[in-house]
Design a protein around this nucleic acid. Structure first.
Lengths: 332, 332
DNA sequence: CAATAAACTGGAAGCGCTTCCATATTGAAT
DNA sequence: ATTCAATATGGAAGCGCTTCCAGTTTATTG
């Protein structure tokens, strides 16, 4: 592997000059630039990124830390982020935190130690305090799908309460009064906010919220099915079930079908997120849209603007959910 | 940020000694080790990984390059790989290639330049020749879901032909004779192999393969739906459709349902991969299992064994698909 | 054409660590 | 005690680059 030194020798210039053309500095004459470029090509020179990072404390890469690497939500988010960064000539370094505080901090340290220029965090186990402290460090970052008021200008999040509200309101408008709710882990901010919105819509319609119609799931498909089984086993009556994400909704439908229920004739279902697969379920799932793409784009643009000084644009931190009406809800 | 230098000063030993305890070298007395550790704690010392990489040409991380970051197949693979590496105390650096040769090579260079100790490649646009040449370089790597005979001991792949064969055979056993096939891109190895297996099963049963029953999709859900529409529009008759992956099968079912077909009464469907969601489709999708987890594990173990000398174990390169019988296929 | 500013170039230090080599210390064996 | 190997430690070079500073060249102006 050729080094900058060999390039400088071949081109007949100094190390500094080679470095300057490498970094597109001003104040390099056209002539030396040409000589250097020619030498680089001849030697098939490739800069050593590690050495550059050590000397400059930069890396031209942004670290992305997610709870999980699989699942439609994380997949879509990762894809969008990576694409947006790639367009801007930056590299994404992705790693996973597994919703476990130690692992998440470990992943965070890894990315910081690798001198990522900035971080995008989609994690839920690390505490607010830790992140607030982190914001005083040297590595700039944004937080996705979470709002920490002390550093809310670094946060990009959905109006989850509105989402939960819209879903419940829609069911109510369709004539449902007995509405079961399968939530995500109630330790997570998004879960509780969605549930709050749900309750708010019920209250507005003077429908009491019944604890017996609530099942706390874990956002995974299986827990939707478990939820339905739980509700049925406890002899709850309901004509619709609202789920805190699409995967649980799909699991819930599967569970209902195991009991020979007709969907949506005997029971309506509504999801949350508008994951790509919802359109391919049967019946097609009515759900709440989570503008994953927009959020991914906005967060990378924040970084391009604030860290790389590339763009000048307006930043929106909160995103608005919307109802996507399909076929899993019936008038009651 | 404290450096090794400050640690050595505080501990009253040399730089080399600090480095030795940092790297768990032999020949360090218990006493100096204790002094150094104490100093590190007191200074809250964190090694600079970049500097270590530069000096040692190692990074304690393995690069993972995938075609896409989303979708159940890639998601599951990434998750398993990351988990396996994490268990072994190694870090995964993930990046995407988007099935585009330039992007893939770009990602590859990125990972190599970052001095990853090894690479895991799940890509399809980079040519065999390029990878063969790469195998003569300094960065060891494995290739997933692809078999290049010149370097087949670096390759981990499914017996795709057997998979295609098993699916078709099962349909035939259930009495189907007119079987449509929705394939992946026929430029991709796995697609053509699966199709070959399909044809083989037909031939064994003396059923002629009809070009008119073949639709070339792209592995995405939508193309399954497009495939069904295409087949219907061209007035093909068939009682079953085999798909080259589960997403297209799900799209195909959706398409069939748009035409008011009953599934599986009027038409049977079989998928490929056994993605997690197939169990939650309605009807539950009969499919071919792709042991994603096993493959991910095996490939990381190859690295642990050959690069990090951690494990000593037998390596299997080819994995065997299996039929998963569920409810989307009916006796004909 | 001199004076001055602007553009360009080279030298050298330094980023934080690893690793080789040489020297010093220890302990076991004679 | 003496010798020799094994073990432990320090010094210093070097990984490949960036960046500051000082010095040199070129262009600009009156």
């Amino acid at each position: 592997m050729a080094t900058i030194y060999e390039v400088s020798a071949l081109a007949g210039v100094s190390l500094s000059s080679v470095s300057r053309v490498l970094n597109d500095h001003e104040h390099v004459s056209k002539k030396t630039k040409e000589k250097v470029v020619a030498a680089m090509n001849e030697l098939n020179y490739r800069p050593n990124t590690i050495a550059r990072s050590l000397a400059s404390n930069r890396s031209n890469s942004v670290g992305v830390l997610v709870s999980e690497l699989h699942g439609p939500f994380f997949g879509a988010m990762l894809s969008s982020i990576e694409l947006e960064l790639r367009k801007a000539g930056k590299h994404a370094v992705i790693t996973a935190g597994h919703s476990d505080e130690e692992s998440e901090i470990n992943g965070l340290d890894f990315l910081i130690d690798r001198k990522c220029d900035a971080l995008i965090l989609l994690v839920d186990a690390i505490s607010d305090d830790y992140l607030i402290k982190l914001s005083k460090g040297n590595t700039p970052f944004v937080i996705l799908n979470r709002n920490i008021s002390e550093i809310s200008d670094h946060c990009f999040y959905l109006d989850n309460e509105l989402g939960g509200y819209l879903a419940a309101k829609y069911l109510i408008e369709q004539g449902h009064k007995e509405i079961a709710y399968i939530s995500g882990p109630l330790t997570k901010q998004d879960s509780t906010e969605r549930l709050t919105g749900h309750k708010k819509a019920l209250a507005e319609a003077n429908i009491p919220f019944k604890e017996s119609l609530l099942y706390e799931g874990d956002y995974l498909t299986k827990s939707g099915r478990d939820g339905i089984n739980y509700l049925i086993k406890h002899k709850s009556t309901f004509t619709a079930v609202a789920c805190s994400n699409d995967e649980m909704a799909s699991g819930a439908m599967r569970g209902a079908r195991d009991h020979k229920w007709l969907i949506p004739e005997q029971c309506s279902f509504i999801g949350f997120d508008n994951a790509f697969f919802t359109e391919y379920l049967y019946p097609q799932l009515t759900t709440i849209n989570f503008p994953v793409n927009d959020m991914a784009k906005m967060s990378t643009q924040w970084i391009l603007k604030n860290v790389y000084k590339q763009k000048e644009l307006d930043i929106t931190n909160m995103f608005i959910p919307e109802l996507i009406e399909r076929q899993s809800v019936k008038k009651n």
